[in-house]
Structure formats: C-alpha cells, structure tokens
C-alpha cells in the first residue's frame, strides 16, 4: 500500500567507526519513523535489518560513515557511504560465511560473514560499490507496494 505522505521524508545519521555502544541507533530511529507511518511490520523488519547490518559494517571496518534514507509513498531508499579500507573482492565478500573481521569483533558477536548477505536478502534492489583506500557505498531500495 502506498504511503499517504505529501513530500518524501528524509533522514541522515553519522556513524563513528569503533563505536559499538551506539550500534543500531540509526536503525532504531528509522524503525520509529516507519512505525509512525504505519508501514507493514515485515517491511519495517527487513529495512531495519538491512540498515543495522550496514551500520555494523561501518562500525567494524571504517573510520566513519553516513547513513541517509528517503521514504517516498512507494519506496524506502537507503544509502550508506563510509570512509573505510574498501572491499578487494566484492563477490567473495558477498559469500555467506566469508568474513575478514578480527577476533575481537567476533568475540562481540559480529563478523559471522552474514552482513552483506543479510542486506541483499532484505532489500529489493541492492547495489554496492567500493574503491580500495577510499571507501564503500551501498544503496538499497525496499518497495512499499
């Protein structure tokens, strides 16, 4: 069902690398916006899983990053850009179970090699672009109709 909104709703969050304590805060706020708009529970779940995994990747691997979202009557568009090391082999990184996370990250319950697969699985359109030494940009779209 299309949302009854006149103008697109936009939001933006800064994500700081290494800050595990606030991990998920951007996704939690996006969840509240979507709840207010009466978006279907399953779509909220998929959108916030995708953004939470994206947030985690910035926190684990990058110095900093930014998450932007736009909610239109028919879509949720999410874009995450980071200042990280970049991904050498995207195909390999997309493989379930493949992870380069260090042991201390695994000890905190992350780095199981399911982050990118989780993002792809939960979005209708998934695009990833990465430049070594510069960073990674991920764009995800979820259809509301």
């Amino acid at each position: 069902m299309a949302l009854d909104i006149e103008n697109p709703i936009e939001g933006s969050f800064q994500i700081i690398g290494g800050n595990f304590d606030n991990a998920g805060e951007a996704s939690s706020q996006l969840k509240n916006r979507l709840l207010e708009l009466n978006v279907n529970d399953d779509i909220i779940r998929r959108a916030t899983i995708a953004t939470f995994e994206a947030e985690m990747n910035v926190i684990i691997y990058a110095a900093a990053g930014r998450l932007n979202f736009v909610i239109t009557p028919t879509q949720i568009q999410i874009r995450i850009e980071d200042m990280g090391p970049g991904i050498e082999n995207i195909e390999q990184a997309m493989t379930e179970g493949y992870s380069t996370a260090p042991e201390w990250v695994r000890a905190m319950g992350w780095g199981a090699g399911m982050g990118l697969p989780n993002m792809k699985k939960n979005s209708d359109v998934f695009k990833i672009d990465s430049v070594i030494g510069e960073g990674t940009t991920i764009e995800m779209t979820l259809n509301l109709t």
Partner: peptide, 30 residues
C-alpha cells in the same frame, strides 16, 4: 553471532545467548 538472529526468522522467539552488550538488545529489537 547476532547476524544469525536477524538472518533466520526469529520474530516472537526467545534468544538464548552468552553475550550481553548493547548490540544484543538492538538486534533483539530489530
């Protein structure tokens, strides 16, 4: 491993875990 909790369909589940940090609570919420 928190990504598994989000990968499998765990809505209305009980999470049994050995970890107790903020991201566990946020994972549960989402």
């Amino acid at each position: 491993m928190m990504s598994t909790v989000m990968y499998y369909h765990t809505a209305d589940s009980l999470l049994i875990t050995g970890l107790s940090q903020p991201s566990v609570i946020r994972t549960a919420e989402i």
